[in-house]
Simulated assay, not measured.
Amino acid sequence: MSRVRVLMVRVYLSESDHEMKSLLRCLHDELQVCGVTVMRGIAGYGGSGVVHEASLVDLSVDLPLVLEFFDLPEKAERAIERIADFVAPGHVVSWPVTIEGNGKPC
């Protein structure tokens, strides 16, 4: 079994950011990174300290969104630079990970 070192990138957004579609288009069409997943949080808070959470009576919510992707370190770092146009400073984190398997990141 071979191993490949990649960079995992996590982007923190909220539903009110309205950048998700543009960001996904950029990651998919322009940058063609591997393994993009978007997760919707049920609760969270950011720099403001205001807690946003889902409830049955809410008609309008501003829940947290987490977008993750991975790719070879050079490609992931280029993507991080490019998506700075879509994401507030301090909302992107990354760390090295190892993919187990066939030796290809995608």
Rank of each mutant, 00 (worst) to 15 (best):
L67T: 00
V93G: 01
R10E: 14
Y45K: 15
G49Q: 06
S55W: 08
V50Y: 03
V33G: 00
L59P: 00
S48N: 11
W95R: 13
S60I: 15
T98G: 00
E15T: 05
H18W: 03
F70M: 12
G47A: 13
A54H: 10
V33F: 01
V4N: 00
V66F: 03
D17L: 13
M20G: 04
G35R: 12
L67A: 06
S94I: 03
L31W: 14
L27I: 03
F70V: 06
K21I: 09
V33W: 00
R25E: 09
G46E: 07
L27P: 06
R5E: 13
L23I: 02
V61Q: 10
G90F: 08
V51I: 10
D58C: 05
V66A: 06
E81F: 07
F86H: 10
L65H: 01
E100Y: 11
A54P: 02
L27R: 08
T37N: 07
G90M: 06
V97Y: 05
S16M: 07
E100Q: 14
F70A: 14
V97E: 12
A84K: 15
S60N: 12
D85W: 07
R3H: 09
R5A: 11
M39S: 07
L31M: 12
L7A: 01
I80Q: 05
H18A: 11
R78F: 00
P64C: 11
A76R: 03
V51R: 08
V4I: 14
D62C: 07
V50L: 12
S2L: 12
V11F: 09
E68P: 00
L27F: 01
P105S: 09
M8G: 03
E68K: 08
F70K: 09
Q32G: 00
V66S: 03
D85Y: 08
Y12A: 13
M39T: 05
R5T: 14
F86A: 10
C34Q: 05
N102L: 13
G90L: 08
L72Q: 04
Y12M: 12
C34Y: 01
I42M: 15
Y12L: 12
F86P: 04
V38C: 11
D17M: 13
D58V: 02
S22R: 15
G49P: 05
E68Q: 12
C34H: 02
V38E: 05
G101K: 05
E81A: 12
L27C: 08
H28W: 00
L27Y: 06
L24R: 04
L23K: 10
G90I: 13
K21L: 15
V50F: 02
G46H: 11
E68C: 06
A88V: 05
F70H: 09
G41Q: 11
K21W: 10
V57G: 06
L24D: 04
E30S: 10
E30D: 15
L7V: 04
G47M: 13
I42L: 15
A88N: 12
M20D: 02
I99F: 08
I80C: 10
P105Y: 09
A54L: 14
I80W: 02
R25K: 14
L67D: 05
T98W: 14
D29E: 15
S48I: 07
W95G: 07
R5H: 07
L67H: 04
N102W: 11
R40D: 00
V4D: 01
E68T: 14
W95F: 15
V11Y: 15
V11H: 10
G101P: 01
M39G: 03
E30N: 04
G103V: 01
R25M: 11
S94L: 04
R25W: 10
M1P: 11
